[in-house]
Write a protein that binds this DNA or RNA. Structure first.
Lengths: 138, 138
DNA sequence: TGCAATTTGTTACTATGTAGCATAGGAAAA
DNA sequence: TTTTCCTATGCTACATAGTAACAAATTGCA
């Protein structure tokens, strides 16, 4: 296993940890420009790919953005998993929940039709508790 | 209500109906080049937006692509709804299922945390019945 | 030390989506 | 019928997201 990529991955992960909301790849790129003036998109995407494979981050398909995985990670235990992501369209905050029964019943339903599930994308848009019920004024 | 947009929308919808698999906006653009040599992306995106709002098509967030809604539509009844989309990564076919109980329990779970759901994105990647269980050779 | 493997840099490109403004054509009022 | 207005479309340009291909550098190991 190559360890050389880990420095860049750590910097990308730090950028994501600092941010409240998910970041697009190009926002990460901009954040790293300070330390690496010549950094290119390719470098960021390579780090993101590795982090995704290790389950350290999630990609938000409906936002084209990335966030850190909120579940516990020991340094060496890579554990990719399936989550439900709830996205506040008002403040941009995203929360991650596990819902094993729900995923199981979703899987069961599809298996009955002959479909073999491999990856779930479950993203719910709405308003988070902090932003409260629909306000007319934003 | 303006009716002028409907011609373009119908042509986009037809292109999607003809296709087995979902199409990207630019594939639709290419398909319409025959009838409209000078068509620009903007036009296609405007038609897609209107069709989405009327529930005639779905956007696949994890593919950046669009497909027709497989549920019945009378010509005037616009009924946007929430579906589960199962996407075959082998042949590209997408199937749409309704799962009201599942969506309800997902919603309930989030509401308990104070989150107010407004739009669900549920896309499951895997292999469809036709493509069968995992083949080593593709 | 020197070779092999892999990361990173670099350039260029493809894909996806939007802004802004001019124009045209239909609906509705005069 | 003619004018006015609203909105769809055409059009140019741009913004954002992601990838390919190859060169240069760095590390591990013989």
């Amino acid at each position: 296993m190559g360890k050389r990529g880990e420095k860049m991955q750590a910097e990308v992960l730090d950028a994501l940890k600092v941010s409240e909301a998910p970041m697009s790849a190009y926002e990460i790129l901009a954040a790293l420009r300070g330390a690496h003036p010549k950094i290119a998109p390719t470098t960021v995407y390579r780090a993101l790919k590795a982090l995704l494979e290790h389950g350290r981050i999630h990609r938000l398909e409906s936002l084209n953005a990335y966030m850190t995985c909120q579940h516990l990670h020991t340094d060496d235990a890579a554990h990719p998993h399936q989550s439900v992501l709830s996205i506040c369209d008002d403040c941009g905050a995203v929360d991650e929940s596990e819902a094993p029964e729900l995923l199981a019943s979703l899987g069961d339903m599809l298996v009955k039709t002959g479909f073999q599930p491999q990856r779930h994308v479950i993203e719910v848009h709405g308003r988070c508790a902090d932003c409260g019920p629909e306000r007319s004024v934003r």
